[in-house]
């Protein structure tokens, strides 16, 4: 069960906004986190608390393939992102590195920045504790659920290779 305050953004938040390329000369998550959202929300890094939840409308994470984007968000303390839709490369990257994403139009429409949410990942249940409302996110396709429960792509790949007896 995840619980945290909401940091809310609009549509088409791009990966340059999440982590500007000028900071991509390093790849350590903690370093990247220091500059997360800097160009569109200068105070984000100061405001964010471990477990907080990021929220946006459509096409979150569009632009480049930099995995530094979900790494920065995760290392900044965000426990999950709820949006109406995600850009596809960002979606893969986040799942691969173990940053949970949920798609839920109603939760995004009815939640304001600063609200406190409680999220149960496996059922997709989202409770807005500030407003006393409850929503259900779109369920993951079966394959994605398997990937997540394996612990991400690297663990999944290790298991696949082990079953093929390659290693």
């Amino acid at each position: 069960m995840l619980k945290g305050k909401v940091h809310k953004y609009g549509a088409n938040v791009d990966t340059d906004a999440i982590i500007p390329a000028r900071y991509l000369n390093v790849s350590e998550p903690a370093e990247l986190a220091k500059h997360c959202m800097e160009d569109i929300d200068r105070d984000f890094v100061k405001k964010v608390k471990p477990g907080d939840i990021m929220m946006a409308t459509t096409n979150f994470g569009c632009g480049s393939s930099r995995e530094h984007a979900p790494l920065a968000i995760k290392a900044a303390g965000i426990s999950c992102i709820i949006a109406k839709s995600f850009a596809r490369i960002f979606f893969r990257n986040a799942i691969n590195i173990g940053l949970p994403l949920l798609e839920c139009d109603a939760a995004v429409d009815k939640t304001e920045a600063g609200d406190t949410l409680e999220v149960e990942l496996y059922s997709g249940r989202i409770k807005n504790l500030t407003r006393g409302m409850e929503f259900t996110a779109k369920p993951y396709p079966k394959f994605m659920a398997e990937l997540i429960s394996a612990g991400g792509l690297i663990e999944y790949t290790r298991k696949r290779l082990a079953s093929r007896e390659i290693i």
Binding site: S65, E67, I89, N96, P141, L153, I154, R160, L161
Partner: peptide, 20 residues
């Protein structure tokens, strides 16, 4: 198609990748 670094890491090991 573009992907992230972890996808590329997995494909470098196995020679294949999942897609929808």
């Amino acid at each position: 198609t573009g992907m992230g670094s972890t996808d590329i890491a997995a494909a470098m090991a196995t020679g294949d990748i999942w897609m929808k």
